[in-house]
Write a protein that binds this DNA or RNA. Sequence first.
RNA 1: GGGCGGAUAGCUCAGCUGGUUAGAGCGCUUCGUUUACACCGAAGGGGUCGGGGGUUCAAGUCCCUCUCUGCCCACCA
Length: 905
Amino acid sequence: MSSELSRVYDPKAHEERLGAWWEAQGFFQPETQAQLGQLDPEKPPFVIPMPPPNVTGALHLGHAIMDAVEDFLVRAKRQQGYPALWIPGTDHAGIATQSIVERFLEESGSSRQAIGRAAFEQEVWSWKEEYHGRISGQQRRLGISCDWQRERFTLDPNLSRAVRTSFVRLYEEGLIYRGDYLVNWSPKLQTAVSDLEVEYEEMEGTLYTFKYRLQGSDDYIPVATTRPETVLGDTGLAVHPDDERYGPLAGRHVLVPLQDRPIPVVADDAVDLSFGTGAFKITPGHDHTDYEVGQRHGLPCLAIFDRNAHLNETTGKFAGLSREEGRVQIWADMEAQGLTLKTEPHTVRVPRSQRSGEIIEPMISTQWFVKMEEMAQRAKEAVETGQIEIVPSSFAKVYFHWLDNIRDWCISRQLWWGHRIPVWYGPDGHMFCAMDAEEAHARAQCHYGAPTRLEQDADVLDTWYSSGLWPFSILGWPEQTEDYARYYPASVLETGYDILFFWVARMIMLGLKLTGQVPFRTVYLHGLVRAEDGKKMSKSEDNAVDPLDVILEYGADALRFALLTGISPGNDLTVQTSRFENNRNFANKVWNAFRFLRFHAEGRTLPLTQPENVFLTTYALPAPELLTLADRWILARLAKVTRDAEGLLAAWQIGEMGKSLYDFIWHELCDWYVEAAKITLRGAESEKAQATVQVLAHVLGQSMRYLHPYLPFLTEAIWQELPSLPSVIPTIMLARWGDISAAVDSQALTDFGLLQKIVRAIRNLRAEYKIDPGLRLKVQMTCQSRPALLTANQGLLAALARLDASESRFGLGWAKPDRCITLTVEEVTIYFPWTGVLDMEAEKQRLQAQSDDLQGQLQRVRQLLANTSFVSRAPAEVVTREREKSVKLEWESHQIKQRLQEIQG
RNA sequence: GGGCGGAUAGCUCAGCUGGUUAGAGCGCUUCGUUUACACCGAAGGGGUCGGGGGUUCAAGUCCCUCUCUGCCCACCA
């Protein structure tokens, strides 16, 4: 054995070294592919824009799955000769990053207000630098094959220009507007957030019922609410038009408790008669539903909360109270005035800020919005018409539903970290939307007729706005760059289904609007990674696993393979440490199969094929007459498995494809073929031994190609050590797939399959009879129709089943021994002559058990074949298969019964 | 309230357009250090595929229904 190859594969010895080398050589740039002549001119570019991770912190396994899947796709395509481009980058993540840095400042007794906008931004930039470094370090260690030369950040100058360009365009088209609307206000972050950034939590609360007195009457309308403090903001009372009790009261006025302010009673079918009292108060200034109802009836909005969600000065004595304090106080005062009726427990939906967790207060404020309706419909059509395919397709419905019910997107945020809104205001409030201050001032000069001082809008844009431009902004848009022309639209957008609305839908809308094209052809949605406790892995849950920790312990390849074989499209994946271990073991298994080859290849020449394209070069196979049954079998299996692999890949079955390669390599190549090869190889320098090494090299080499997108480091390390390969192929990633055209030798599959069954049956027998593992058994083995199969493979059978080859007899024509154990495997009968004490009772039981089992199967098949409906309606091949099986079973069963009779008698 | 998904071995999960006796990894039992690998090998045990109907020659797979469970969306105050 070559001394320099360790017995155990050590990822640490290869991964970092190879990763650095790949990157230094520029292998992950399509330009390099072209230089090497590895591109297939028929094939269009394959492009993936990487979903940019937030620079809020280090990555966890939830990100690693994204990296693994995308890297898999890109490597696979690259190997197949597509110009492959995967553009990496990170996202400034406005709210998320700002709040993390703010928290950090708070801990050191400071605040953003204390240090000011400029210094704060500086703080965030240095935070960004640190985490960007950590993130890309993690990704490099994972071995991802993106083009780092083209790396982007959402606040890069080019991307900022894309943001401003798009804003100006949409503004000029009237699709971006500014106005006072009810928005979700985060009192803690002091900013508006979009509908998507609000999460609703069900909580046990209280339903308060009280009296709304009718003006000029002693009567009242009972009203239920979960937020009595908002009565001070009521501007109407809604009743159902069909309500016999209150419907007729529409048009009259009721008096707001504690204020005696008259407000109108309006009739609206949004009222649910079966809930509460069948009437509800309308607070348009602090509730989304009420806002809409209020709009319908022309009710004014009253703001009763300030930016901290404390009751404001309009509430008189309650000013300054928090929402919770206000609720208690106001209800107490109402009670004192005899206005309350009852309180009862009630489950309420509390809106919380996704980012900071505090309760959102809907408030009227001046914000910027994007009109969605038209863009949403076009985005819907893109998927309906198949211009964009969503995988798995079940998500298309969710996507449609969201687009159909979309509301305008609030894109302004009262933050400091992000893209500043490119709008300037004159002294009279006139707005100038422009690419930069200079242009704004020039426009102002025209407008006012003299140079005028302008103020830029203080707000920044929602992070998802710049993310929405990602697929084209990273390629240089709005400039018509070469990259933009060549690599847009992208091929695949791969991401988690949790950001389908946040990001994917918006990219499609903005992409169609701004570039006139779909931004990508396929959306592949992977599942969420769950921690071992079953919860979604996230930084905030504190159950995040750092990929680096896993890599350090098991290697990047083991991590990748575990993630990739654990997924199926759209389904979540629960991380299990045992899977990392298992896959590390697999890497070691592959490594050792390779060491076995290396050892036996030493001193031999392994001829290579000479195809026109050097990337298709592989180990040449020996002349057909030199192939053993095992050789033919493994080649047939290779052909089958690789063919299946390509089909699975086309169906996005990455996990299934990985598993089938895993099974093939471990349980067929290693467990059977290598063991069979040892027998041939023992025969020293024969032609057959040479042939076997060639076959092994061929199969292993081809396996490395298919395995490479899963285990890039291991396969690269092995590829470089494979004997005889021309130096023109520097790396596995430049070895193309799809050069396996061999027909599947089904005879070899059947024949070797039978030998496997025989070996298994004998091993089973040995275990059952507790036969000394060292003892070489003497057997007589006959095969009714094909004795040659046994005689030709007696060496193999003897070795694998540990038989005494010289004393055993294979084929036909042997007298049955007097005392023996019998084994029947399909049409093969095996006698084990027995000279020692034989427990005939045990033997009887064993045979009886087998016989019973066979009877059961036979009965099923006979019934099936006796069923005329089956015979006439099932496909011919299914019927044939059952017929053949029935013959086999009959024969086998007959043999066993006969033997049982002998024993009885 | 709508929509989507899940329920398969002790655990975590595969099972594509219905077609051998339903699989994997881990765990479990027994055996084995045979010169690629103990991060190994061999042989086992373990499942009425959530319940109930239906379609079909044939159902884990398709349809209906129920139970449990997760997620998304939504103006029951």
